[in-house]
Amino acid sequence: MIERWVYEQYKEFCVADVAIECFKIDAARLSRDIQTRIGNALRQLGCKRIEKRTHATTRFWYKSPTEMGHDRRTGRGDEEKGSDHGIAF
């Protein structure tokens, strides 16, 4: 469920976006425990966490593996795709 939602994202998103849009959790019921579980799942799926600071707050945003150019099944970047495992001579 979360994997499909993440791979459909083409812009940065936050944990609240996942909770509200993917899991249909009301924002008022979004506890720290739920946020932590979603964050762990996002990291396991290969999402990159980005820290954005403003005057008084720090927020974490995520980039999906597809936005970073990673292969969906293997989690490898575009530069690692292909069958050549060494340097061509």
Score class of each variant (00 low, 15 high):
Trp61Asp: 03
Ala16Thr: 11
His85Gln: 13
Cys14His: 05
Gln44Cys: 12
Asp33Gly: 00
Met68Asp: 12
Ala27Ser: 05
Ala28Pro: 00
Tyr7Ala: 09
Gln35Lys: 07
Pro65Leu: 03
Asp17Thr: 04
Ala56Pro: 06
Gly69Tyr: 07
Lys81Glu: 06
Phe13Lys: 07
Ala27Trp: 00
Arg72Asn: 06
Cys14Arg: 05
Glu80Phe: 10
Gly86Asp: 06
Val18Leu: 14
Glu67Ser: 08
Thr74Tyr: 11
Trp5His: 00
Val18Trp: 08
Ala88Phe: 13
Gly39Gln: 01
Thr54Lys: 08
Lys63Asp: 00
Arg29Trp: 12
Asp78Phe: 07
Tyr10Gly: 02
Gly69Pro: 15
Glu12Asp: 02
Asn40Tyr: 13
Ser31Asp: 01
Arg4Thr: 11
Thr66Trp: 05
Gln44Phe: 12
Ile50Leu: 15
Lys11Thr: 12
Cys47Ile: 05
His55Ser: 09
Asp33Ser: 01
Lys11Ser: 12
Ser83Lys: 15
Gly86Glu: 05
Ile87Trp: 14
Gln9Thr: 09
Asp71Phe: 03
Gly75Phe: 07
Val18His: 01
Thr57Pro: 05
Arg32Met: 04
Gly39Val: 00
Lys24Asn: 08
Arg49Tyr: 02
Arg49Glu: 10
Ala88Tyr: 11
Trp5Asp: 04
Phe23Val: 08
Asn40Ala: 10
Gly69Lys: 09
Ile20Ala: 01
Ser83Gly: 15
Ile87Ala: 11
Glu12Ile: 04
Gln9Val: 07
Arg72Ala: 13
Ala41Glu: 12
Tyr62Gly: 06
Asp17His: 05
Ala41Trp: 05
His85Gly: 04
Lys81Cys: 10
Phe60His: 09
His55Cys: 07
Gly86Ser: 05
Arg53Thr: 08
Asp33His: 05
Lys52Arg: 14
Arg53Asn: 09
Lys48Gln: 08
Asp17Phe: 03
Gly77Tyr: 15
Lys52Cys: 14
Ser31Thr: 09
Leu42Glu: 01
Ile50Tyr: 07
Asp17Tyr: 00
Gly75Cys: 12
